[in-house]
């Protein structure tokens, strides 16, 4: 930290930024019809809601174990598929491998576009195209993972040690051989670690996918909410929380082993 970073300097610039942000916030508030007094007036509703959530109906647990397992299975298969497809594209998305700015640029743009589609919208779209079911959920997770992991992998490839590539090139290896023997060994551990990270993210995300008909525990969440059975909603949320915590802990343990 340098002296010029302290708030005595540039305070007029900071003030301008704050002013700008306030204007944006004011604009947004006008646009969205924000009225905070409404929140306090209807705070009773939150109380009622929370009160009903506070009485979980534990007898419902046996009914949600199977959908929960399905959700986990969907996440695992989707993650694996997504990572498998992400690897070749990630290699193509770095100039380290392609030595060609155009190919890399095009692939990166495609990956960027895939990443911008929100998860739930993708699920809704695929449900409309393919139909309701778990396979749709798997596909959604696979596409989502593909976008997320391919970026992580190509960023990893860009930081590798270029020595082995040069060595392989000098003995006449082609691009595929370089990718397999010079680059892959350096990033395998990272890919494995990213896969587990993606699994963590996916388990969280997949719990709501069922809301649009893409299978798993979200279907139960949706129907319980629609039927106003909040005792069930709270059991479902509790189950999701516990499962997510377990998956996080397991995957973190494995990732630490890999590192």
């Amino acid at each position: 930290m340098k002296l010029k970073d302290t708030i005595h300097f540039n305070w007029y610039k900071n003030l301008f930024v704050v002013f700008l942000l306030l204007v944006c916030a004011g604009g947004s508030a006008a646009l969205t019809g924000a009225d905070f007094s409404e929140v306090f007036e209807n705070a009773g509703q939150i109380g009622i809601f929370m009160g009903r959530l506070a009485h979980p109906d534990f007898s419902y647990i046996p009914d949600i174990l199977n959908p929960m397992l399905k959700t986990l299975q969907m996440s695992v298969v989707g993650t694996v598929l997504g990572v498998l497809f992400a690897i070749p594209f990630a290699f193509l998305a770095t100039t380290v491998v392609t030595r060609n700015r155009v190919v890399t640029g095009v692939i990166r743009f495609l990956l960027d576009v895939i990443r911008t589609i929100p998860n739930l919208l993708l699920a809704a779209l695929l449900v409309a195209v393919i139909g309701i079911g778990e396979a749709t959920g798997v596909l959604t997770i696979a596409v989502f993972t593909f976008g997320m992991v391919s970026q992580l992998i190509y960023e990893a490839i860009e930081t590798i040690d270029e020595g082995p590539i040069e060595a392989a090139e000098s003995v006449g290896a082609n691009k595929v051989q370089i990718a397999a023997w010079s680059i892959a060994p350096q990033i395998l551990a990272q890919i494995a670690s990213y896969t587990f990270y993606a699994l963590e993210v996916n388990v969280r995300a997949s719990t709501v996918l069922g809301y649009v008909g893409a299978g798993g525990i979200g279907v139960m969440l949706n129907s319980s909410l629609a039927l106003l059975k909040y005792e069930r909603v709270s059991v479902i949320i509790l189950t999701i929380l516990i499962v997510v915590a377990i998956v996080d802990a397991l995957s973190e343990m494995i990732r630490r082993r890999l590192a």
């Binding site: 139909g131 396979a135 749709t136 082993r257």
Partner: peptide
């Protein structure tokens, strides 16, 4: 660990209901 991971993947892949994919035809897509 590797064996366990592969088992989990196979178990998951076997547990999923793929019936919705059967109704999908290329012309629809």
């Amino acid at each position: 660990i590797a064996a366990a991971v592969i088992l989990v993947i196979l178990f998951s892949a076997a547990g999923i209901d793929y019936s919705s994919l059967a109704a999908f035809t290329p012309s629809m897509g």
